[in-house]
Amino acid sequence: MQNFKHIYWIATLITLISGLLVYTNVNDRIVLDPAEADEFTLDPAEFDPDDEDAKIFRYSKFGRKDEAVYKRGTRESDGAPIIVASSDNSISTVTTPLTADPTIFQNVDWEWKIESVLPSGDMTKKDGDDFAARVYVTFDYDPSNLGFGERIKYNLYKTFTSFEIPLRSLNYVWGNKPDRVGDTAPSPFSDWVQYVVVKSGNEEAGEWHTEKRNILEDYRMVYGEDPPAISGITIMTDSDNTGESTQAYFGPITISKE
């Protein structure tokens, strides 16, 4: 009976973490050289959900869960290319693996729009841990800096996957009704993921908005330390925990120097 409980606990942890973390291969990244560029833009015009080897905006599913749908679209107001993301009790991501120094490439800005937030969404609860739109920034955190218990958990995850697992992540989210702009909180599944609420509720839904955040300052704010190298940028629309439906739209994402 004890062995069964142990196996069940391990399986549960793996299932939970698979819905939280974006996996990147360290040898498969775009490297931002500050001597050669001041900024780098992820252009939705280059999005191809069927290209498994795409350098930017690479589609990734989450295990056996139903998949959110990402398509390339066109913004009505100006004809600009966009990514249209739809989720119906589902989850998946579009990821760009890259390497950048956050003390140099400090800023990330992006354009987004949602149709509506999730009625049951609440970032403090596991069954409410869904968002119409997220922009992730992940980091190359050294596992040796983890506490004893966290190292055990990390090694457990590594037993079941060959991917690099980001141990630090800034999750910029369009929060649901209970989530207030400016709020920060750990994911209810793991404090390896930290939420920063940039927009919230339906008052500004249906309109395009441009956001700009300082990655260095936000990382220091939520983790209380300086960040390691950036390992990737990801967009996500998910509703697998609430079982509800939503749609979001993403424009260009740019990472740039201060």
Rank of each mutant, 00 (worst) to 15 (best):
W174F: 05
I14C: 10
A185P: 00
D101A: 10
F62T: 14
L21K: 00
P119M: 11
N89L: 08
I215Y: 09
D140E: 12
T95A: 13
I10F: 10
D43S: 14
Y172V: 04
W192C: 13
S90C: 04
T246L: 05
P143Y: 06
L42Q: 04
D66F: 15
T96D: 14
I104H: 02
R213Y: 00
K257W: 02
T138V: 10
I235N: 03
V26A: 07
K61W: 08
D183C: 09
Y59S: 07
Y70R: 00
E76T: 15
D78Y: 10
E204Q: 12
T234H: 02
E111Q: 14
K55V: 12
Y70L: 03
E76Q: 15
D48E: 15
V222P: 07
L118V: 08
A100K: 01
D66P: 14
I30S: 01
V196H: 00
I83S: 03
N145H: 06
L21T: 01
T12E: 10
S120P: 10
S200R: 09
I233N: 04
N27C: 07
K177R: 07
V198K: 00
G149A: 11
E150Q: 12
Q106K: 14
T74V: 15
K61Y: 04
G182L: 03
V181P: 00
M236P: 12
P102H: 00
A45W: 02
D142G: 01
H6K: 15
S120Q: 15
P166V: 07
I114K: 11
G224I: 01
